[in-house]
Computed example of a mutant assay.
Amino acid sequence: MINSVQNVSNLSMTRALGAVDTENSVSSSATTMPGTAGAASGLSFASVMGSMATDTVNSLKSAESMSFAGIKGTATTREVVDSMLQAEQALQTAIAIRDKVVTAFLEVTRMQM
């Protein structure tokens, strides 16, 4: 199901970000603010957004595999629920960021030159 999303370049809104390898990346357990991570290390906006998208995809894949493990009986109900809640929060964050980008784009297009 989630394996159909192989990289961020498949998404129509993020073609300028380039390909992000979701198979070899490892999501970190530390949480940082997106603005501070890019400002402190000199990363570009595109690379920060790409890494956030990669982390979201990895979270969704992890939740999917954990749900299958729950069905097989190898994972506890709590582990499955925690994984699903984490994936839901990551997806809601990605949707909120997308909505803000679309709103900003619409505001720019309404500006008078």
Rank of each mutant, 00 (worst) to 15 (best):
M1K: 00
M1H: 11
I2P: 08
S4L: 14
V5S: 03
S9K: 14
S12E: 09
R15F: 06
A16H: 00
G18I: 12
A19M: 05
V20W: 11
T22A: 09
N24Y: 02
S25P: 00
V26M: 05
S27K: 02
S28D: 11
T31D: 11
T31E: 09
T32Y: 15
T32F: 15
P34H: 07
P34G: 08
T36L: 04
T36K: 03
T36I: 04
G38M: 06
G38E: 09
A39Q: 06
A40L: 12
S41E: 15
G42I: 09
L43T: 10
F45Q: 13
A46S: 14
A46Q: 13
S47C: 03
M49E: 00
G50P: 06
G50L: 00
A53V: 12
T56L: 09
T56V: 13
N58W: 02
S59I: 05
S59P: 00
L60K: 03
L60H: 01
E64V: 10
S65K: 08
M66K: 04
F68P: 03
G70S: 06
I71G: 02
K72D: 05
K72S: 12
G73Y: 06
G73W: 06
T74V: 15
A75T: 01
R78N: 01
R78Q: 04
E79G: 09
E79K: 02
V81G: 07
V81Y: 05
D82F: 02
D82T: 07
D82G: 02
L85D: 00
Q86R: 14
E88A: 13
E88T: 13
E88D: 11
Q89M: 07
A90M: 05
A90R: 10
T93D: 13
T93V: 10
T93I: 12
A94T: 03
I95M: 08
A96V: 04
A96D: 08
I97C: 10
R98D: 13
D99K: 03
D99P: 01
K100V: 15
K100H: 13
T103G: 12
T103S: 15
A104Y: 14
A104L: 15
F105D: 05
L106A: 14
T109W: 07
R110F: 07
R110V: 11
R110A: 15
Q112D: 11
M113Y: 01
